[in-house]
Design a protein around this nucleic acid. Sequence first.
DNA 1: CTGTTAGCGCTTTCAA
DNA 2: TTGAAAGCGCTAACAG
Lengths: 333, 333
Amino acid sequence: MAVTLRDVAEKAGVSVRTVSNVVNGFQHIAPATRARVQEALEELNYRPNLVARSLRQGRTGIIMLVLPEINVSYFGELAHEVVDYASLCGITVQIDESGGDSLREKQLLTALSRASWVDGVLFSSLGLRGVDLAGLAGSRPLVLLGERTARTALDHVGIDNVEAARQAVAHLIERGRTRVAAIGGSGGARDATSKYRLKGFERAVRDAGLDPEGLYLRTPDYRRGSAASAVRELLEWDERPDALFCFSDELAAGALRELYEHGVRVPDEIAVMGFDDIEASSFSTPSLSTIRPDKAGIAKAAVDTLLRRLDDPAGERREINVGFELVRRESSG
Amino acid sequence: MAVTLRDVAEKAGVSVRTVSNVVNGFQHIAPATRARVQEALEELNYRPNLVARSLRQGRTGIIMLVLPEINVSYFGELAHEVVDYASLCGITVQIDESGGDSLREKQLLTALSRASWVDGVLFSSLGLRGVDLAGLAGSRPLVLLGERTARTALDHVGIDNVEAARQAVAHLIERGRTRVAAIGGSGGARDATSKYRLKGFERAVRDAGLDPEGLYLRTPDYRRGSAASAVRELLEWDERPDALFCFSDELAAGALRELYEHGVRVPDEIAVMGFDDIEASSFSTPSLSTIRPDKAGIAKAAVDTLLRRLDDPAGERREINVGFELVRRESSG
DNA sequence: CTGTTAGCGCTTTCAA
DNA sequence: TTGAAAGCGCTAACAG
């Protein structure tokens, strides 16, 4: 059914070798031969069988991007950048979701070893443990995205979460707030991201000579729906906070909604900062001040690192910190 | 380097055939042999080379999902459902973005024929033309998602956009609105989605004995940022509309923002309806009334249809309409 | 410059 | 029940 090199070779009256050379743009070919082969190629509408090519070359040009959930805006935007940049490099991206919960994380690891056609993996997880990673040791190159959750020899691309969080909270304090609360986190005990954002929060508060004690509320995940109960709780404190630092824009969106339902004016009564700068945040009412990680930069660094690792499996471990930016909008006053 | 069937066969003192049988769970194997092979398998930590297997079997278990942009919430949520359901079927999903603009649509088609390892394609495009599709005729099975934009023999999964839009607008009219405007669309001349939603809008308006003339404003795309200028324009009409039907939730979010900036109260002065029910919509202020297409249903139908088509390439064309639901929230009063 | 050919690792037909 | 071997379509080493 499918046209093969042999079919083309027969039609053009040359060997498969020659056809292969033409297909792959090899240099030293007699113009006449090339023309003849080209013609046969067109006439038969030849399409190379990439599976066969991959088997031969040991590379597929496919990388896998593993993230918690693609429908979460931040990850959707990150995936967009990755797909975008990878396609520039002639790489196709396959997407797998870890779901965030550790039950499915096991399936995921199975999937990972299942997917032997994948050249390499970009892994963005909230709670990957060292033991999990161990199982991957011998397999394909893997670049960790987001926060490093275990001491490994893996390449890593992320941002300085401590400093970013510190700047976010410092910004609230600069705007005159003195009682800043923080909310965020995830079910995973090893959620390093929230650990570092919390550290940055505490640092900023202490730098201002204030006390962060008792001002942090954990949430089960980073989604919009998870902010409500935390917000309800802090509204009942004896001394209400006058600012709120959310560990994600989605949480912030949920917080804005809950504050609105309680008739609390933002930023007048409570200022709000998010983290991620998802697209929706500049359109919310009020628009959301936030930290904007350089998503395109993360994507580029991640893909580049992975490709480099493919060529040089033994190369030195790379630890890349990509930039971020503080975005001031209405919600922080 | 990688362990192959042969390595295992040698170690176990059997033929590759036998090892293959064990790996694939073949029935008729002597218990003793099986045990010996299992042991060798474990000891060498054998992982099948799926590229080789695919070459042999002519199937990879990979399908491609093509959509405009993965960072657009609706598509992110749809992709989530597709990845979810496909993984249940043992299928991996590869994602490609068409970008929406026809310039990149050509690259996309190239990519499609490039990607010969893909078993089949789920294609969600806003403006695919018949001629474009023609080029794919001989290649892999393709299921069209969203709106059918050309008369083809392709399978198609979507929702009844005319009826959904009609219900949305009828709902606004039921709530007492008499002057409903519509905004949405895309650059493509062949944006069938907006065509049908517009038709549903007009039908609902006429059904109520009103006149839709001059109440539709085209936007360049369905994104949040594209609603602003349309909203500014309709606010300057002599007779202001008292309701607004947006062809997507993102447009509606942009509209809510713009109305807020102009001090127009929603829903008191203008009621707003969206379309898609992205997650953010239930958290906006005011929360957004909208049409909720059964995304999981679309994903399931799409994957099922594609898999069936793989087994039966000559089967009858399938035309599937998935359900939807009207979601009443604050923005429609 | 081009033809011949040996595999890449696997499944599967044909024999035994 | 198991072995031997063909071959999926391609690339590349080796000849010529």
